[in-house]
Design a protein around this nucleic acid. Structure first.
Lengths: 121, 121
DNA sequence: ATGACGTGCAACCCTGGAGTTGCACTCAAA
DNA sequence: TTTGAGTGCAACTCCAGGGTTGCACGTCAT
């Protein structure tokens, strides 16, 4: 894992799914603080087992929110803001799109009502 | 539900949890297209029951992504971009924050290394 | 008034994922 | 070469939630 998919804005649902879990968000926060940490170290700061942390890190890694690098006999994980950032942009774009569509629909509805008022009543 | 909590940046995890489900995203897309629709109408466009749609709409409503209004014997739902937009901002802020923290940590590490190199070796 | 349509409620499966435990493996230091 | 710390793998439990079915309740039109 930790593969660098180049054209990937496709990771959005992965990021969303990853961010949906509170423990995972907490994990990311811890990582952002320390810069680097091993699964065991992180587990000590959380009310869960190391294994649980490992699984979460795997999910985060698959979502591109985190990278794991081996140093000797331990594995250091670090946060990577890129995926989060791109998802944020995607989301902002979506919000803008909704606004656009809703505005269009609203204006159409108003026009239709004007027409109806003019001819029918 | 559909309560307008004013100071709410607290809805973020609600929005994330809501957005984590693909069906729910699809539902939001359909709603953004039509502007308004009933649960039954939406269910016809999806491979799931009306009941499933109702549950999803309840979740989306609780997350503030959707509003339900009663018109006669039917309930019209509409998308509301506000919550999505605020979450997007929150996310962008978080990404920026991570960047900041990582930069700080990196510079600290480099400084420490310089020191070590100067005195020790 | 009565049938048809739309909604609401409740009980019920069933899968996925969060979490655990136990053990085997690897690497570094004594 | 042992000893211990850190990791990896696998099987297992448990429950939240996505989905369904069935029925009761309101609401509009005829």
């Amino acid at each position: 894992m930790t593969d660098e998919r180049p054209g990937a804005g496709a990771g959005v649902d992965g990021v969303l799914a990853a961010l949906a879990d509170p423990t995972r968000r907490q994990l990311l926060d811890l990582l952002a603080d320390r810069g680097e940490a091993t699964a065991t170290a992180l587990a000590e700061q959380l009310p869960v087992t190391r294994q649980a942390v490992v699984k979460h890190l795997a999910v985060l890694d698959a979502a591109g929110l985190v990278t794991g690098g081996r140093v000797g006999r331990e594995v250091r994980y670090a946060v990577r803001p890129a995926a989060l950032d791109s998802t944020a942009r995607w989301m902002a774009g979506l919000a803008a799109d909704w606004d656009r569509r809703l505005a269009t629909i609203k204006s159409l509805a108003e026009a239709a009502e004007r027409d109806a008022r003019r001819s029918g009543e």
